[in-house]
Design a binder for these strands. Structure first.
Lengths: 120, 120, 120, 120
DNA sequence: GTGGTCTAGACCACA
DNA sequence: GTGGTCTAGACCACA
């Protein structure tokens, strides 16, 4: 469920974060559903528990999960998370558009590429 | 001309690289124009010469500048660089589109945001 | 395993690169085998860690090794590397043949020397 | 007659040396023929006189030219130079053959590439 | 422990 | 003056 790609340039903890975000946002992990404990996930992925711990801490800080002491970690309410995530995406989109326009691409041109993104 | 943002998460040498890429691609630094010497830029930005050296070495490897030993560094011919840079941009665009679609945004929706990117 | 020749005109980091290329290509370092850490090799060779770091960075860029942050550096899959290396060799061979022919040697003559290269 | 390629990775003085070697070995500059003065060549090529001076000094050390004080620099006797130059070439050939064999190429294979070197 | 970035500064090759 | 290489050593991110 949480595939780690050691060829990926991003650090493992970021990959874990990104993966959980998607699972929660897409509803594969339901709101208030329990997610694996730090220890279990660490064993399952053969990863240092510190790394999982760090990912969970970050996910909690960003509001994607919440912790109940003695019980475990749980997914937050999706409804509230989606808008936030979309905002993050749009913010990244803005950076790219800005760079593209700076080197002479037009908004229409970029938009057309977006429509055809699977072939980029 | 080369603003360094110490709050920026990216390392200094990457900021320098990115900045020179834009200056060259946008024609603010003309083809074959001399760019500041390693030492001068280091002093101007209050940065260690090694860090500038590294940025310049990377820019040369990526083809944005060329080095003439004992003379200095010079901007490459823009015509050859633009297509490569646009390719990089489109590659990033693809990643974003993929993430956006995964959380339920449609291509049209994204494209519309692109047209309106200045207000994102 | 990594002999450094201070009389060699080539910079140290290039000698390190060349040596690792051979060890990996010849299978003495196996695919996915861990190579010495930056620090350890630096101590062993009495060389500054930065110099090793630079050699490793270059080897990674050329695809001979890959880095797993916090874990170390590992040899890449040899099968993909050999063709590239052979291409580099043939490119150098071309330069030499060109020079030899220019001073009146024939292809056959050079080819014969190749067959007898151990006695050159 | 002495084209300088600023894209060439080799330093200018080496390019000058290499070029004169070829001109003398191929008989384009005849034995005992006067070659341009340091000053004239420097002006003609828009190069620092120090650089030409260095090239000439090296050419003299290697026996390709000789200096007559107050008169200028002259090409040495070709007959004596050719064997030396061929020796240099064969020495480089040996290095390449050694590297090629180490990664599994056979002498026959290399020899065949030599016969076909123009298409490498 | 491991690699990545950066500073400070030396010395060399080249023009 | 200009870039290239290297040493010495600090501090950080990551596992």
């Amino acid at each position: 469920m949480i595939p780690i790609d050691s060829n990926d340039a991003r650090p493992i903890y970021e990959q874990v974060i990104e993966r959980f975000k998607m699972l929660i946002l897409r509803g594969i992990i339901k709101s208030n559903e329990k997610i694996p404990s730090v220890r279990n996930l660490a064993v399952e992925l053969s990863i240092n528990p510190n790394t999982i711990q760090r990912a969970y801490a970050e996910l909690e800080k960003q509001g994607y999960i919440y912790t109940v002491k003695g019980k475990g970690n749980f997914a937050s309410d999706t409804a509230k998370l989606l808008p936030v995530y979309k905002g993050e995406i749009l913010s990244k989109l803005k950076v790219i558009c800005s760079a593209a326009v700076e080197v002479g691409m037009t908004e229409d041109e970029i938009a057309n590429h977006v429509r055809d993104w699977r072939n980029l």
